[in-house]
Design a protein around this nucleic acid. Structure first.
Lengths: 351, 351
DNA sequence: AGGTAGCGTGGGAGCGCTCCCACCGGTGAT
DNA sequence: ATCACCGGTGGGAGCGCTCCCACGCTACCT
């Protein structure tokens, strides 16, 4: 490595100081221009901008981070193995929204997977080093220690699905309860009466809310709550298959199924086929997520669409607010920092 | 924001200096321990490590980056829109290998998409700010300006597929030529004689090499080079469908197809079905990549497997070497920095 | 006229680390 | 005994920036 003194000065990247000299102003002024402070005269600003352009000046991020005690980076933390991340369109949509919201910002987005214990330990170290200004948390389970760690480190965070109705972190979610109702009411409006539900992982709050929506839509329609019509799945295809098989065994006369995810619905479909049931003639099927799977299934799957991209965008908005508030220790608190977005039923031929 | 003087000292994160005081040694010694220098006595090392543990010291990355002029981060740059990244298992496998190779390192991996012009401009700015120590380039087209930019900025880089036979950057690739030969020879050994080829995007060097492999395997078998049996695809399903339809029109007697990717093969399969051809009875089909698609196709698709995870791992090895070499300006140069890994044919019922 | 805002500005101090030089004491060679 | 040497160590200088205080100046008050 080059010796300390020999670096800089000649050849290397230009520094703030050099820009200042070139523009004939002081360091402070250049810094103000770079950071868009309004307290600079137009003439000075122009001179500085010219010097910046001539020298091809690019601020040194490390120096800025050190002096200002911020990193201009936020992390999207996915407490799942890579595999699931890529398998589920949920994440890629979310990423798209997040990317879009960030694209006219100086913020850098980091994608961090924390599926294994080892990765989680690494993440903890990473956060302890305050290498990001804020964290976006997706798909967090009820007992995850991550939110507490973040709170303790005083790192702003926004969570996608609240962990419970008493979530303390700012959150953005879709209306799981309402979405489930939409699905069930749709099936009922089609004349179905024996509607079963395959749930998601029940340690995910959103999955519980879908169960709530199912239950209440059924009882509102005067169709008592037969708990035998509810079977636990886990958001996987295999789980959907298993659950559907169990349901058919208990209630061979089922005429409709609301599955908590499209992948689950795909598993259910397989079990229905195995049992010789036709879709939708014998059994109508509705999924959740409106993913690519839904469109390509045979028959195409009716599904509840969540505005995932939009959720990503809103999460960024919330997080950036949190990060900015951090500085003047604002009167934070009771403003509504929980956001719920509406879902939409996409009707296809499976129902 | 807290005033400058008031930060640190009390309450905040412990600094090197505080650890030094606690351990009763100098700053330099703590730094040496943190960085694993051998020039520290065992007793001193133990004392420092104890102090680090007691204080919960975590080095300040920004300060380190500023002082040492390195970032301890590398970027995986994907010059494609997010969509393709998620659609193709290639990338997720690569990411897995890269992640594995990096997991026992201090290096942080950044994932950067540069599909749009806007994103590319952002990336250029990012690289100009030297925010990463090195770059991993995947799926680069022949005319991409990125490699030149990296060279100009003197940022070490490793490329996955070479851009041409004269690639100057260190690269890791699978044996596209050999893989294509494997595929064709497999088809020939099954008694097929009218073997067509649907290519990938021909501005990708690897796709060209597959064509070469196809051509030479055919002519080595004494089956002249009928250029009409080659049709250009573009790695997409739609392209595969179109190409297959064109081939069938020209040569209705085709009895085998080697497609340059599994996705392409999926498109070809659809066109074959449309034309009433049975697979493999009428036409045998071989793909490339051995992705999930291959396993789930009907019938399951014979495919050429590239050791993508392994490639990711090797790329990291090469890149870390480059990054390290940078420091003592080593005798770089003629050592072999192009790496080619063998492929493997996975035989299934489509052929 | 003197007083007093307030804008636009320059530059000192400091962020927490790495690098390097100087220094210490104990070896082994002379 | 003298000296060069070397492993082990302390701490100064500096990385490039932000923050803030202080300063000059103009414009407006009384």
């Amino acid at each position: 490595m080059a010796t300390h003194g020999a670096r800089g000065r000649s050849g290397g990247r230009p520094t703030l100081e050099e820009v200042a000299a070139r523009a004939g102003v002081g360091r402070g002024t250049v810094s103000r221009v770079i950071n868009g402070s309004p307290r600079v005269s137009d003439a000075t600003r122009a001179a500085v901008e010219a010097a910046v352009a001539e020298l091809g000046y690019v601020p040194n991020t490390a120096a800025r981070a050190l002096a200002a005690n911020r990193t201009d980076a936020i992390a999207l933390v996915v407490p799942e193995p890579e595999t699931r991340f890529f398998a589920e369109p949920y994440f890629s949509d979310m990423l798209k929204g997040v990317g879009a919201a960030l694209s006219d910002t100086e913020m850098q987005l980091l994608l961090i997977f924390a599926g294994s214990d080892r990765e989680r330990a690494r993440l903890a170290q990473y956060l302890a080093a305050h290498r990001v200004d804020g964290v976006l948390l997706v798909s967090v389970h009820a007992d995850d220690p991550l939110p507490d760690l973040l709170a303790q480190l005083e790192i702003p965070a926004v969570i996608s699905g609240p962990r419970s109705s008493a979530e303390t972190l700012p959150s953005v979610d879709s209306d799981n309860y309402g979405g489930a109702r939409q699905a069930v009411e749709h099936l009922l409006s089609r004349g179905r009466t024996r509607v079963a539900h395959i749930t998601g992982r029940l340690d995910v709050y959103g999955a519980q809310r879908r169960v709530d929506g199912y239950r209440e839509a059924m009882s509102d329609a005067g169709l008592g709550a037969d708990e035998g019509m509810i079977e636990a799945g886990d958001f996987t295809e295999e789980g959907g298959h298993r659950a559907m098989a169990a349901l058919l065994e208990r209630h061979p006369d089922i005429d409709a199924v609301f599955a908590a995810s499209d992948v689950t619905a795909a598993g259910a479909r397989r079990a229905l086929r195995d049992a010789g049931r036709r879709i939708p003639e014998d059994v109508a099927l509705v999924g959740y997520d409106d993913s690519a799977i839904a469109r390509h299934m045979e028959p195409p799957l009716t599904s509840v669409r969540q505005p995932i991209e939009e959720m990503g965008r809103r999460m960024i908005d919330l997080l950036l607010t949190e990060v900015a508030d951090r500085r003047p220790l604002a009167s934070r608190g009771l403003e509504r920092r929980q956001m719920v977005l509406a879902t939409e039923l996409v009707s296809r031929s499976s129902s």
